[in-house]
């Protein structure tokens, strides 16, 4: 269900732009304050790219990978709690690039889109998960919008059609962005057998089953094996 969402104006000092960005990458690992008493485990691992993906196993590609537990739908309260425990996720527009290129967020979360370039940018999406157009705004201004439907949103700028970013909207807080060295870590995942999905904008997504016991840490070493098909 699409609902009216408000984009608010905010005059931010231009320099702030990039700071929260780094913070977000780390806090994307899910909520510390998950239920304290229910049994949980941890998933850690490393990803790489096989030759057929034609992507290099390099920092630049690693940070575009999102690892997420797909088969859990958190309750409304848990989601609210997870949202409160995170900083507002940010995608900056700098040097004609959306940064970061891939951002996982929680269902219902507001995302901030500051503009740090010396010209007007625009943020819009025509996809079916969320359709919006934030209008044109100059350097130093920012706009926000919330994402109220799970799925993938491809962001673009109308003026600079080569600008592109992806927002992955998740139904639970058990996800992480892969670090520059290819490693990832998801804490406080409820015990049980889960489907773990690996996503990259240019490689074919795949999933793995993991079984967690209380207090255990599961370790994975996985690789993207194929390139994503056209419009995949």
């Amino acid at each position: 269900m699409k609902r009216a969402s408000f984009s608010k104006i905010r005059f931010v000092v231009a320099a702030i732009g990039t700071v929260p960005l780094l913070a977000v990458a780390q806090t994307a690992e899910a909520g510390e304050n998950g239920k304290q008493n229910s049994p949980t485990g941890t998933i850690v691992g490393k990803v790489s790219f096989d030759k057929k993906t034609r992507l290099k196993s390099k920092r630049k590609e690693f940070v575009k990978v999102v690892v997420s537990v797909e088969d859990i739908e958190s309750s409304a309260e848990d989601m609210a709690m997870a949202r409160d425990s995170r900083n507002t996720p940010v995608i900056d527009q700098k040097d004609m690039t959306f940064r970061p290129h891939v951002l996982p967020v929680l269902l219902g979360e507001m995302v901030d889109f500051p503009n740090s370039d010396p010209l007007f940018h625009n943020v819009y999406s025509n996809g079916e998960t969320k359709r919006f157009d934030l209008g044109m705004y100059p350097k130093g201004q920012s706009k926000q919008i919330d994402f109220d439907k799970p799925g993938i949103v491809e962001l673009r700028c109308k003026v600079h059609s080569e600008m592109q970013a992806f927002i992955l909207i998740k139904k639970n807080p058990y996800f992480a962005t892969v670090q520059k060295d290819g490693s990832f870590r998801i804490d406080n995942v409820p015990v049980g057998t889960h489907t773990l999905e690996f996503w990259h904008p240019k490689a074919k997504a795949f999933s793995r089953e993991v079984t967690l016991e209380d207090g255990s840490t599961v370790e994975l070493d996985v690789a993207f094996s194929e390139r994503r098909g056209r419009r995949g």
């Binding site: 608010k8 104006i9 157009d133 934030l134 044109m136 100059p138 109308k158």
Partner: peptide, 16 residues
């Protein structure tokens, strides 16, 4: 104000 859907013509919303 609304831009032209599906084309590069962007919206120009009230607040900016």
């Amino acid at each position: 104000a609304h831009g032209i859907g599906g084309t590069p013509m962007p919206a120009h919303t009230d607040d900016v």
